[in-house]
Each structure stands twice: as structure tokens, then as C-alpha cells.
Write a protein that binds this DNA or RNA. Sequence first.
DNA 1: GCCGATTTGTTTATCGGTTGAATTATTTTA
DNA 2: TAAAATAATTCAACCGATAAACAAATCGGC
Lengths: 409, 409
Amino acid sequence: MPRPTTTPVGAAAATAVRQASLREHNLALVLRHIASASSPPSRAALAATTGLTRATVSTLVDDLITGRLLTEVDPAPRSGAGRPALGLTLAGHGPAGLGLEVNVDYLAACLVDLTGAVRHRAVRRTDLRPVSPAETLALVADLVTEAAAAADRQDLLLAGTALAVPGLVTAAGVVRLAPNLGWRDVDVPALLGGHPVLAGRGLTVDNEANLAALGELHASSAADSGNFIYISGEVGIGAGIVLHNTLFRGARGWSGELGHVPVHPQGRPCRCGGRGCLEQYAGQEAILGGAELTGAPVARLVEAAERADPAACQALAGAADALGVAVAGVINLLDVDTVVLGGIYAPLARWLAPPVEAAIRRRVLTAAWSPVTVRAALLGGEAAVLGAAGSVVRAVLEQPARWLARPDR
Amino acid sequence: MPRPTTTPVGAAAATAVRQASLREHNLALVLRHIASASSPPSRAALAATTGLTRATVSTLVDDLITGRLLTEVDPAPRSGAGRPALGLTLAGHGPAGLGLEVNVDYLAACLVDLTGAVRHRAVRRTDLRPVSPAETLALVADLVTEAAAAADRQDLLLAGTALAVPGLVTAAGVVRLAPNLGWRDVDVPALLGGHPVLAGRGLTVDNEANLAALGELHASSAADSGNFIYISGEVGIGAGIVLHNTLFRGARGWSGELGHVPVHPQGRPCRCGGRGCLEQYAGQEAILGGAELTGAPVARLVEAAERADPAACQALAGAADALGVAVAGVINLLDVDTVVLGGIYAPLARWLAPPVEAAIRRRVLTAAWSPVTVRAALLGGEAAVLGAAGSVVRAVLEQPARWLARPDR
DNA sequence: GCCGATTTGTTTATCGGTTGAATTATTTTA
DNA sequence: TAAAATAATTCAACCGATAAACAAATCGGC
């Protein structure tokens, strides 16, 4: 009983398919199976699960091994007769992704290899609000050179770079608006793309919540259903929406502005020009202010909540209430099964998750037969950098042919 | 500067690709180009636009013609030298889609051919609330036999059937809940799938707003960007979300419950158990009640609004206000560029659209540089049936190979 | 009215990638 | 030590797309 299909037919996109595309697809298919397998599969096992012939799998695997995407590992201890199988795993000494993050009070970088292992990390804590975009990106460039050296030492090839920014980013990598950094129309590729390590190797710029959601997707992986909304609570509130294991970017790339969803239509005015935006009730400043901890670090709020401080509890209850309203709207609309609380919400999840869950049960029509879980993010403050690096790795895994064709490999 | 790709990698889906899939893809490619062309293209023109060879296009087109999906038309009056080209268009005498609709006070059916022309329509007006699901579907079965006869007379082949229902529908076609019809857990395929005309030929059941959105997508086609939210105002309020020319169904298939998005969190209790749901402020009953026209047809409200009746105007303003809040939330989240007002909102769009647009400008962060249009639906009350039939046609156009392989062709 | 230029559509040899069967390789079991 | 079992590779065959040559149908110039 198939549903009407949902592939676009209108704006005739898509291109012709030649036999080469066939190979591209099957390379990706094999790699995907290896990446998501619980233990290193053999060529024969891959043939069985993918539906390809053993012969075909062999040639595909050969290409992937010479491209340094796979390595053969010793046969797993087996039972029964027959020639032992060689296991195949993602190569630890192949391409790696460089993740970068610019945030209000720190810069971060990390290197992640194909297996998902973090091979290098670096953080610089500074208040970047008074620093100009160009100067900030010069500091980032230092992190890049450092990371490139680390990659070299560890026999890793830099496959690409992704930068997380707390703001709205165009598809071309221009930061349209990052209110808390004070950035407006900053052309990151122009300022950073000239770096010798980055040049020609692909630099992606994306919203911090989007990349953090990708990080969370990577981390949770097989367990979850791959449908969740990652809510990044910081000074502002962003959201990364993941549907069917895929980051959803919205029609024009500006999805997930959860902070400005109205929750009290006639309520407090917001700096965006609207009234009663979520940010005014559940943003970092609103919560800390309500808890009489304006300007304090979030850890202080956690302490206060732990000793059941009335102001803190009330502030958290208010935030949870507002969050519940916004999240209920989201779920009525998008029907995700999990809400991940990230950023400052992660350490506060103990107090936020239960009331938000209750609000969902109360306000979501379908909640009765398709329950929704609210939980803290698995990754802490590193979610965005890790997600950034992971997005590069993921791109290689999804389009191995593109990697194999690269001259600088 | 490519964004991180967004194809799923987690749950290893996708299957092996053999040369046959190649052909399937290219058949669809050619057909898509013909469907979206402004005038009947020649084989040579198709080769140029698709990137395939003229030879390949020829063989593909041959298959499509013998499958009754295409017909050759006389050469368009040309200029210049050379052998005149034969134009190719979608066949008017090939497969056709049957659309059905069950609603609170009527049943409807229609036949749409590949070109999008409506070849048959039928409507039965009755109050179906007191009628049992089985009896209702028996009435629908009559419409089906009638439509099948019409298809026969006009040399059309029934490719499939889609039924629109104002409620929540599972992927298997079971109506979980249709509050205004009084349906709960009605297994439509079991009750209707046995019909001789339908058996084995594919019966799809879907939410009315979803199919209406598809209808609207079909109707607007090339002009629009293919990103909109279709809001179906009836007793309840549903929404069909179209992103990149694709109907978005949500993680589990229950997206678009706009009627229960909270707009006044502490407001009126709703029958869903929540408080302040949009439906309580912009649903048909709320508006008519506010206009002191409880139970009257919507046309009366339009009249009242036209003579600037104060109660009517106030009711409409209140509804627009609530709609604006909900829609602003949607756009902050999904970033669509168009809002289509359907159902009872279509005739009321004159009064609703401007305030909703104003609310968006005020409340949506990105509205400044990516404007949003609010407009009335192009199709009237027939949107859902037409969309249902269109969804069948679309399925054939998207997967011609599947149609060509059908034994009953 | 004929001939070359031009464009369309088909034919034919070739190529690339997958398949299936046969072959080789390496282990366990009898 | 032989037989059975499983893994991986080799090779002819197949299928769909390609490129180039060829046939068909029109226009323009003389």
C-alpha cells in the first residue's frame, strides 16, 4: 500500500545517469554498509547484505582500499569450516575531517578520522565579542595550521573543513547575522579560504545548532530512529532538525530559528521585533535573570537548582513551560520522536525534561500513540565542533567516488 | 562551497544498483523533462537538455511510446533548415489517476490523465456524520465503478487510486482518527480494496490537507519555488507542507497538525486536551461563532465581511491574529516562502492574508531578506480530490518503469 | 528544380560495469 | 589425508550508454 511518492517532479533537476554513476552509487553502498556494521564484515557478507555479487564487491573494495578508505583486518575468531574471511573496516589512517567552531567566548578545533575517533582537539577561551571578524578568523587560521600539523604527524589526510558559527549562514558560507558575536555579512570563505591548508580542499560554514545536531546524530547513531530536534540553548536558541537521519535545512537554508517562535504572543518584546519569542523566556539571559544570577555561569544555576533554590526553580519552571509550548508546536508540525536538549539545556535537563515531556503529552494530538522522548544531549559543549568534523567525514563516506577522484589524495 | 551532504548514512537503506536501475532512472528523467517542458520537445532537444545521447533518448522514448505514456505530435512550425522534429507530449489516452475524497458533508471522485486534464468528476452531497464508515465506503465504491466506466469510455487505463480523508492516516491506509467524521481505526484498504476495479491496482489513503497541498503544487507548478505550506481550514485545521517540490510527511507520517499548535498557551481548552490550540481561535466554528453566524455556511460570513459587519470583521481579525502566530512559528522553523490559504480560508483570504503577512514580517527573524507571500489557494474545494488523482499520475511519471512493467497495462 | 547545408533520428561498433559460473585459496571435519 | 565448506578471484557474457557514421527530411541559393 505505497504512499504517493515524494521525489520532485516539478523543477526538472537531476541529471543523466551513465554507468559511472552506477559505480559511484555502489561504492557508497558498500562503504555505508561497512560503516554501519557492528563488526567488520567480509566481502562475502557484504555481497549477501547489499545484493551485489561477490565479484563486484571485490572490485569495489579494492578501489576503496587503494583509496585509503578501508583496511583489511585479521579474521575474527570463527566457528565452522571454510576459508576464514578478511574483515573490512573504515581506515583509521585515511582522510580526516577538520571541525572548527567560533563561539562567543571560545574557539575550538578538532580532527576526526573515518572511524569517528577524535585525533586532535584544541580550544582557546577568549571573549570574542570585542574582536573583529577578521581578527577572529586569523585566530582560527592558527588553529587550522596546528591541526594540519597534527594530521601530518598521524598520517591523516585532510579531506575538508567545516566551521560552526552561532548565526545565520548562507549556502555560500557568508554569515548573514550572528547577533551574539556582532557579525553581519561576514564572508568567511573569502577571509579564511585562502589559508594554504584549506585552499581548494572545501570549506563549509554552517549554523552551530545544525552541526551540533549532526554531531548528536553521529553519536547516537544506530540506537535512535534518526528523527529528532536538537535544541541548542545559548544566549539565543537555535534548533537543528534531523529527519530520517538527515539534517533538514528548510526551504532556503534558514530553518530552526526556534528562539523566535512566539510562545506568549502578547508577551515581552524581543530584539527581533516580535513579541513573546521563546528566547525571552527560555534564553540564557532570561533564565539566569529569573534565577537572580544575571551574568553568572550556568554551573552556578545548576548548583542553585540542586539545593532547590526557589528563584532558580521558578526560573527553570518558566523556561520549561515556554519550551514546552514551542516544542509542542514543533512536534505537531514535524512529528519527531525525540527532543534533544543541548547547549546550556544539557546540564539543566534534569529539571527541564520532565515538564517539557508533560507539555508534549498534553498538547500533541498524536502523542497518545507515538510517544516523544526528551533527553539531554550526549555530547557536551563539543557537539558543534565534533559535528562539523563529522560532517566532513560523512561527506567522504557518502560520496567516496568524489574522494577517490581527488588529485590531492 | 558545498554544504555537508544530507543523504542518510546511518540506517543503511538503499539497495544495489544494477544496469536496469540505470534505465529506470533515465526513463524517469526523460519523462520528467517532457512533463515540465513548455512546448513538446523533440528527441534531439531532450538529448541536449538531459545530457544523454540522441541514440539513448530514442530508445527510451520508444519504450515510453509503446507504454502509452507519450505520443508524438506534429512538428511545431519551425524556422531554419533541417529535418523537422517530432514533438513529444504526455499521452492523453494512457494511464489516468482516480482521486477520491470523503469529507464531512460530501463525497467526491475525479479522473485525471497524464496531461493533468480532468476527464471525469462526480460529487455527492450528504451529511456523512451519521453514516457508518462501512456504509460511507460503500457509497465511495459506487463512485469508483462509475469512474471506471468513464475511464473505459474515454480509452483511459486506471493506474491507481488515492483517497483523501480529513484525519490522521497510517502508512498502511488505516484512518487512526478522523474526529469530524467520527472515524477511529478504520481500515480503508480492507473495506474498499476488494473492489474489482481497485484490486491489485494500488489504493492509497492520505490526509486531506496533504493531498490538497499536492494538488496545489501541481496547479502552481513551474511558477512557484516549490516551497510552501498549504493550510486547510475546515472544522479542524490541517496543513500540508511542501519543501523542494516534495510533500513532507514528518518523521512518522503525522506532520502538519497545525490546528493544535498552541497560540495562546493559557487560553481556551481544546478537545485535544491542550489549551489555546489554533483551532480554538481560527477553526471554522470559532470564526463563525465569533461572527454570530454559528452553523451558517461560510458564504454568509463572506457576505458579512463584505458589508463590513463589525462582528464578522472582529472574528476574522482574531482568526488572522492566531493564524499569524502559528504561521510565524512555522516559518521560523521551516523557512518556507509561501503560505497558501485553503479550505474555508480561500474565500476569506482577502481579509486574512494581509494581517498574517504583517505578523510574519514582525515575528520572523529572516523575513527581512527572504520575504514570505500569503495567498489564497488556486484550487477551490476540489483541491484534495484533484491532488489525490494527481498523486497517482505523479507516481506514474516518477516511476515510469514500474508502470511499463505492469501486466494489466 | 537541383544541390549543398542543416538538423533529426536511427544504426552499428565499442566501452564500462555487473553478473554468473568456474577456479583458486584456505580452513575445518571426518 | 581426503572431503567438505567457505572466501575470494578470474573470465566470458550481458546490458545499457556512447560515439560516430548513416539515412531522412527540410531550407536556401542558384
